[in-house]
């Protein structure tokens, strides 16, 4: 306990922890944003062109089974980045999260009632406008669940990235192990957990705001 307080009391480590935390948020959530931007068009393609479905979902499943460390190490070879560059982690996690989200996006778009889509078309929506303002908002309940899983799993996967020296709270683990000093390890674990919980709560709040309509039916006449 004492050693933890001493560790936390040091201004230098405080700054270090804060930097690592910010880095961790950035490394884990930027891929989620990128993955949503990729998964929506890909999911839309599988929704629109059924024959793409089996192939694309197959690829997504395979990608998802590649061990994260392997992917972190493979990426530089593929895209030509430095082996220790944070870009590797962002790229790898973007690939994972995209693989995770493609299917929910396609399923959610499939689940939008045909008569609602037909009504939007009949009102005079152009296809892209309809996708963005009618179909995607209706996909949020399903998509949101995928985004939460992706965010939380990214937060834990970023820690692995520390093994190849790319920053984030995982650096506190590698640091603690190499110095046989438990305080940073404990702080790293606790902060990672807290970060995952806080991000998840925030996503739930955002999702609830975006889907007030979905709960409206439950309080008929209220």
């Amino acid at each position: 306990m004492d050693s933890i307080l001493r560790y936390l009391g040091n201004a230098g480590t405080q700054r270090e922890i804060l930097d690592r935390l910010v880095e961790h948020v950035y490394l884990s959530l930027l891929p989620v944003v990128l993955a949503v931007l990729l998964a929506v068009p890909l999911g839309w393609c599988t929704h629109r062109f059924r024959w793409l479905r089996a192939g694309l979902f197959g690829v997504a499943n395979v990608v998802y089974t590649i061990p994260s460390l392997a992917l972190f190490v493979l990426i530089p070879a593929v895209i030509g980045t430095q082996i220790l560059s944070p870009v590797n982690v962002v790229a790898a996690l973007t690939i994972y999260t995209t693989a995770l989200l493609v299917r929910p996006v396609a399923d959610a778009l499939d689940a939008v009632p045909a008569h609602v889509v037909a009504a939007a078309t009949a009102m005079g929506y152009r296809p892209l406008h309809r996708l963005l303002t009618v179909e995607l908002p209706l996909a949020v309940p399903v998509l949101g669940a995928g985004v939460r899983v992706g965010s939380v799993s990214n937060i834990s996967l970023v820690s692995v990235g520390a093994l190849i020296g790319t920053g984030g709270l995982g650096v506190l683990f590698t640091d603690g192990f190499s110095r046989r000093y438990p305080a940073p390890i404990l702080v790293g674990v606790v902060l990672t957990l807290l970060l995952a919980l806080v991000v998840d709560r925030l996503l739930v709040l955002v999702q609830r705001r975006l889907t007030r309509w979905a709960r409206a039916g439950e309080v008929t006449g209220g």
Binding site: P113, H115, V116, A118, A119, A120, T121, A122, M123, G124, V134, P137, L138, T211, W213, A214
Partner: peptide, 18 residues
Amino acid sequence: RLRRGIGYVIQQAGLFPH
């Protein structure tokens, strides 16, 4: 544009739930 000038009422109303 053509459709914006032609009203359409669909079976089951087809209202936008959101």
